[in-house]
Design a binder for these strands. Structure first.
Lengths: 241, 241
DNA sequence: TCAAAAGTGTTATAGGTACACCCATGT
DNA sequence: ACATGGGTGTACCTATAACACTTTTGA
């Protein structure tokens, strides 16, 4: 692909990892991705361990410099795809961090994005970032490089806000899901317990959560009805608001 | 001051206005400010008319490149101060716009900020940007340069959201104000009428709107009690949330 | 029959909406 | 007295929260 060649060639002009420190860039911008992992009791965040200075050995958010011929969103999508191998990930811009001294080797302004994925069957080793990427509980984060702790705090707050209003669970939990599974998603993300009856009443107002005629199978209790996300209805209602 | 000299010298390396197009920067980042003006029936936005290509003659948001030794927020504060001559303006980062082709002369990623000011007694001519800055109704915007229409739409939406939860009116309406004045602020910003009684009940929940023992004077109707913003109480409640 | 989770119903409270009415002031 | 906006009260409706209860399945 022609574009790839151009991209890679250009990228070397901004390559930060293999050059001596004193020839480091003076001005650059990057994206950083806060990938939340759903699956365990606590919500997780995907971090990579830094193999080089600065902050060697500390944990950091996956990210990259933005290529000169690449939109910001495209850049975030590229990094997320390399990280997760998931094709159709929803992600959202959070905030831009631009303190002069946030990167010790030069001026790097970074645009933060967040996404949430299902950790089940998710193998970070399959991805380019590979061996050094690990999940960490959002409640027990290690020492982080740069201002990445701020970025995570900011992103987590935005994730919580969006959870109440957007179907972030779509693409994370099973395509056909029980209301209890949906409730678990909310409880994990918001770190808060909900009353079953009240939760169902609230979900009932979300017209885009549509019941199917299917039920769970082979469970040692009463099988639950399965629901699914009505994408068309959701998009239609979004447009008119 | 030493810092100023350094800033100005450095800035010339990124100066965009006085250099031939073919020596234009390849990569830069800027801030753009959406200054909302409160005072007339409709909410206004401060725009400047472009005197040079690209988009010569079109209206654009005031903004500037970010100096290499300047934080993003500092940069926005500097531009806003130059624009408004107001010392203690509240402003907030909105979103970062980074499409590759958003600037026809090179790659410029811009970070958008918004602020809201009182237009009364506000004279943009006193400021550096001077003669070409004008207020425009947010409901009737002219043709805009770059992606500035998107930036305004995005900022306006964020302004509306924040109006419900933050005391944006502080510093915009009089320091001691009537509840009707406060209601007018909400009505103008949100472009929506409120019921007097219900509005007052809602305000009653905002503990940081504190009644004083003062009243309006010389009005041809029953004088209204004056209220003021309780900054200490607001900050205390912010910290604990 | 029992455990486990599905699924529904009841009640109390809080907040929002619509609207009516009285009050204090200058002219 | 009257016009004008200040200020308050009521009645209704809806959303939320706490909690109790019935139902259906596999073991």
């Amino acid at each position: 692909m022609a574009k790839t060649n151009k991209t890679l060639r250009r990228r070397n002009e901004y390559q930060i990892y293999d050059v001596p420190i004193d020839s480091f860039f003076e001005l650059a911008f990057s994206i950083d991705c806060v990938v939340f992992g759903y699956g365990k009791k606590d919500l997780q965040v995907l971090l990579t361990q830094r193999g080089a200075e600065p902050y060697k050995g500390l944990w950091a958010l996956p990210g990259d410099l933005v290529y000169p011929d690449e939109d910001l969103d495209t850049s975030a999508g590229r990094v997320l795809k390399a990280l997760t191998s998931l094709p159709d990930l929803n992600f959202e811009q959070v905030h831009t961090f631009g303190a002069v001294d946030r990167h010790p080797l030069g001026r790097v302004v970074t645009v933060a994005y967040y996404a949430i994925v299902n950790m089940k069957g998710f193998n970070p080793k399959a991805a380019f970032w590979a061996d050094k990427a690990k999940w960490h509980s959002v409640k027990n984060l290690p020492k982080l490089a740069f201002d990445h702790r701020d970025i995570i705090d900011y992103s987590y707050k935005k994730l919580k806000e969006s959870t109440m209003t957007k179907p972030l669970w779509n693409g994370v939990i099973e395509e056909k899901f029980t209301l209890t599974q949906l409730q678990s998603f909310f409880e994990t993300v918001l770190d808060k317990k909900f009353d079953k009856g009240n939760f169902r009443k609230k979900i009932d107002l979300f017209q885009y959560v549509k019941e199917t005629e299917e039920f769970e199978k082979d469970v040692p209790y009463r099988p639950s009805r399965l629901f699914k996300f009505d994408k068309k209805l959701y998009q239609k209602n979004e447009e008119s608001s």
